[in-house]
Simulated scan of single mutants.
Amino acid sequence: MTLLSIHPLSSNYHQQASELAQLLGLPLNKEAAFALQLGDMGLQLQELADKAPGPVRVDFVEGALAHRRQFGGGTGQMIAKAVGVQAGVRPSILDATAGLGRDAFVLACLECNVVMIERQPVIAKLLEDGLARALANLDTQIIAQRMRLLQGDAINLMQSWQLETPQVVHLDPMFPHREKSALVKKEMRLFRPLVGDDLDAPKLLSTALALASHRVVVKRPRKAPCIEGPKPSYSLEGKSSRYDVYTLKTLKS
């Protein structure tokens, strides 16, 4: 059985699904473990096994991110403190491991300009789809305009960086699987077969440190070891996760 197939949810989307299958080099309407489904709600990833959880899609307009946009705690959030958001300071940020774009969206809500990199093409397409819908919605349009997506390998892109140098690079590498870890969430259940572990995390960190002008921030499970390499300047610890902060220069207004 193939790992992933493109499935239109109605005949209205057959042409789009066919073009997407060709673009991603994936089969169309084949039996598979996972389906990238295209329909009225946009693009979504669905596991096809019995008793599988519901689909995963990127939605900046409604749901959990809409609630966080309205009631998320503003500059008091741990991620805001980690990247250096403060009075008169809204650093430019490169989110080099964008995933579903949640952290990038939170930072864009705080008026930071964020460039996102996602190397897995299917996840990048989910993110592109969610970003397009956010740009078309009046409630999220201005926020989405602060977000830019690049698809490719973060290490290669950072080593040959052509855009304005980011003040902060944010990293959230996939953590190696452990039983009873937080990675049993449905997103991780779907993504791990596609993405695997970020075994190049030390190289990712060293490349980020060479690019960022002011700091690098690494999100980790709370009890996980630091990424191999230089020790962080300090860490901010929450209930389930922490941020290791590598300071290079002081952020000033």
Rank of each mutant, 00 (worst) to 15 (best):
A132G: 04
R220Y: 02
Q151M: 01
R146G: 11
A136I: 06
L131F: 09
E128M: 05
L127S: 12
A210M: 08
P221D: 11
F175R: 07
T250G: 08
L205D: 01
Q159P: 11
E228C: 03
L199P: 02
L149E: 03
R133T: 10
M147R: 11
K180C: 00
K252E: 15
F175I: 00
R178A: 14
T140P: 13
I142D: 15
I143M: 04
L138I: 14
N137L: 07
N137R: 07
A154T: 05
E237Y: 03
R178Q: 15
R220C: 01
L138E: 15
L205H: 06
P173L: 11
E237S: 11
K223N: 15
L199M: 14
R192T: 04
T247Y: 02
Y243I: 00
E179R: 11
P176C: 00
P225F: 08
V122C: 10
L163I: 02
R189G: 07
V169H: 06
H170Y: 15
D153E: 09
A132N: 10
L190Q: 10
L149C: 06
T250Y: 05
L149A: 03
A210P: 09
R242V: 03
A208V: 01
V169L: 07
F175Q: 07
K231T: 06
R220A: 02
V168N: 03
F175D: 00
Q162V: 07
I155C: 12
L251H: 05
V184F: 10
H170M: 15
A134P: 01
P176Y: 09
K185Q: 14
L248Y: 09
V122K: 13
Y246L: 05
M174K: 06
L236S: 07
T250R: 13
V216E: 06
S240C: 03
A124L: 10
L126G: 04
L204N: 08
Y234R: 15
E237C: 04
L149I: 02
S206G: 00
D139I: 00
S181M: 02
K249P: 05
A136Q: 13
T165G: 06
V169C: 09
N137V: 02
L211T: 06
L150R: 14
P202K: 04
D200P: 00
P173N: 07
A212D: 06
C226T: 14
R242F: 05
L171I: 11
L183D: 03
P230D: 07
I227V: 15
G229E: 11
L209T: 01
L157G: 05
S241M: 09
P193T: 01
D172S: 12
M188L: 10
L149V: 06
